[in-house]
Design a protein around this nucleic acid. Structure first.
Length: 211
DNA sequence: GACCAGGTCCTTG
DNA sequence: CAAGGACATGGT
């Protein structure tokens, strides 16, 4: 049953991959991901989709457009994601960073992962998870995303580590392959949504009943 | 009506 | 440094 923490991480990834196979996760171009990563903070994805559609309809769904846009316009378009004032401020901060520092998402893609990560973390409203989502899904880097679900599931699986430590653990056992990283996180979220309620969590049982 | 969602920041102890 | 509150709309 209990192996090292890293082998447990590897096991979780393997079991979930076998169970779910390949699933579509976070489609869209770099601009979509940069914006969606902020909008999805503490928010259901379905509500983010609505906001993205509205932004698109109003030609605001790009970093360059948000950089220029009137905050009130942004607020109005993203209301469905909740926290709309805070998120508007965060989108503005992110857009400002990307445009002033790199001249846009395109040029930004030429820079190394660590440099980008450090820069993103200095933007107000961009924390570890959002930064890693942007790097993994927006810039196709092998930067693993640790969210509340991952943290929770690892706890159930007997790996009661801090999020920052979990990131290192997973990155140690994952194949250094873009698609592996995207899928691994996707599988964990799908699994958690299916089996972990806040009050009722079946994860512990499933995680420990082998296979 | 209560409770929660693919977090992050700010304030307290 | 850990814990608690604020931010807000939409679905169960």
């Amino acid at each position: 049953m209990s192996g090292s923490s890293s082998s447990e991480c590897a096991r979780i990834i393997r079991v979930l991959k076998e169970h779910y196979g390949h699933i579509p996760w976070w489609p869209g171009d770099t601009d979509d991901v940069l914006i969606g990563a902020v909008l999805t903070q503490q928010t259901r994805w379905e509500n983010v989709v609505r906001a993205l559609a509205l932004l698109k309809k109003r030609s605001l769904c790009s970093v360059a457009a948000l950089y220029e846009a009137d905050p009130a316009e942004i607020e109005n378009a993203i209301r469905s994601t909740g926290f709309y004032k805070v998120k508007t401020r965060r989108l503005k901060a992110l857009a400002t960073f990307v445009m002033r520092e790199y001249g846009g998402p395109g040029p930004m893609a030429e820079y190394p992962t660590e440099l980008l990560r450090e820069g993103l973390l200095h933007v107000s409203g961009i924390g570890e998870e959002t930064a890693d989502c942007i790097l993994c899904y927006g810039f196709h880097r092998t930067s693993f995303v640790i969210d509340a679900y991952t943290h929770h599931i690892c706890g159930c699986a007997g790996i009661p580590e801090q999020k920052s430590r979990l990131k290192a653990l997973f990155e140690k056992v994952l194949l250094p392959d873009q698609d592996t990283y995207r899928q691994a996180h996707a599988h964990i979220v799908e699994y958690a949504k299916e089996y972990c309620g806040k009050k009722r969590c079946e994860t512990c049982i499933l995680m420990n009943s082998n296979e």
